[in-house]
Design a protein around this nucleic acid. Structure first.
Lengths: 248, 248
DNA sequence: CGTACAATTGAGTGAGTTCAAGTGGGGTGG
DNA sequence: CCACCCCACTTGAACTCACTCAATTGTACG
């Protein structure tokens, strides 16, 4: 039992720490940073804080900004007037939001972006960010990596929806998040990490219903593979989870 | 590398017409073309002809070429050792293949590419193609459009698999192909177009089985919305199809 | 306490799968 | 010219994974 349980919305990450994270993203560059370019970027960057559930970008709006997600989780999604929603990707702290703004500037956004937890973002004009990126070979590489990961994740999700069972999809998604967070040092030694995702979000990401997500989650929990409790996901048996992901 | 021509399968589209199509693609540019750059491009382009079912790119191979699909259809897909396959996109004559090679050069391909019908492609080193594109504002715009359409199509397919019924998915896919071919003048007045796609491909693209594709197709045919006969798809009632796509 | 929202559980249903058998057309060899 | 084969398509019947509807529990917060 936990004595201190607080609602996520209460603990917005502090703004002053935002640009420290921002610094680590491909857009701002890793390692040695050109100080002049960096100052220019800070001057042009607009830091915003959004509560959980708020919409950052709406499908169809022209793209001209791109963001670094400094703190919190967000997701890309498409929604129909009748309520059907499909989540295309989860974005984690340090990820770049709307990298697409650089692929095809000023086109209408092909999806919406919403804050999953409360978030802090730094916004840049796409053109500025690209100019900054031209400067450094290392940063360019880092940008390629970010694009690549996003594209890979999209194609994996597509395979999931088309060709995997509920258990397989869930295992696959959990493993992907586990890995992405792990490479940022955001996974504890016990295999657990912060997980501000509702079962409804999982359903919308995996093309299932919340009820069935619940049943599947319960099954995986009973089998001792993983659990979700108090906004925290724990992977107990990664190899077994990997096997589920592969076989189903 | 020089243009090299060879003749293979009997019914391959003629090579001499290849570069006329190639000319119409974003990579080669539309309208007025810089003649010097164009000649340079022809010098550097390698034209290849592949029979139906041959693999052009294998998942995991490093990307350094990109292709213009001059004739025939191809598709992006992922396949598991156990045989499960998911088709991510169909590529039509005039489309660019592996545009990703420019997004994140030299990364391993996140999917494979296979010829659906017999095809003719022009291959370019990604770096060369990009340099060529820098030259013209119009071509740059055309490239953005191509990227955008591909990304949009991926997100739509994702929504389809997650949130639409079999009928809805089929209607959606047919309408998308109808539109893309229409804008190239490849749809006849009677609403029909060449369709070298097997029911098995439809199944792998829409996350269904070939048997169920068959049943669903039969239903749409009975309702007088569309039909597939002798490698030719005919849309009888586009508005009704649109309604199916929207509601299911 | 009362409200609100997320998670949980049960029972019945249905969309899509699996297995299996049969049809039809186009190409090939005799 | 026919016989045969191959492959894609078609159809039937049984099955099952995941959905729907509906009620209940748990937790946070005013």
């Amino acid at each position: 039992m936990n004595t201190h349980m607080r609602h996520e919305a209460d603990q917005s990450p502090p703004l002053e720490s935002a640009c420290r994270v921002c610094q680590l993203s491909p857009v701002r560059g890793q390692g040695s940073v050109d100080q002049a370019a960096n100052r220019a970027c800070v001057r042009n960057c607009e830091t915003r804080s959004l509560a959980a559930g708020r919409t950052l970008v709406r499908e169809g709006e022209p793209l001209h900004q791109l963001y670094v997600l400094c703190a919190g989780w967000a997701f890309y999604y498409k929604q129909l007037p009748d309520g059907r929603r499909q989540i295309a990707a989860f974005l984690l702290p340090g990820d770049t939001l709307m990298l697409e703004a650089a692929y095809f500037p000023s086109f209408p956004a092909p999806f919406s972006v919403k804050a999953l937890s409360s978030i802090v973002v730094c916004g840049f004009a796409a053109a500025d960010a690209m100019r900054l990126l031209q400067g450094s070979e290392a940063r360019q590489q880092e940008l390629y990596r970010a694009r690549y990961q996003l594209m890979q994740s999209l194609h994996s999700r597509l395979f999931d929806l088309g060709r995997r069972t509920a258990r397989g999809r869930l295992a696959q998604l959990v493993l992907e998040l586990h890995e992405r967070l792990g490479s940022r040092g955001m996974v504890h030694d016990d295999g657990s990490f912060d997980f501000p995702v509702r079962q409804e979000h999982l359903a919308d990401a995996l093309g299932l219903t919340a009820v069935y997500i619940n049943r599947t989650l319960a099954q995986l929990r009973r089998e001792g593979l993983m659990t979700i409790e108090n906004g925290r996901l724990t992977v107990f048996d990664a190899p077994a989870l990997r096997q589920v992901a592969q076989e189903e």
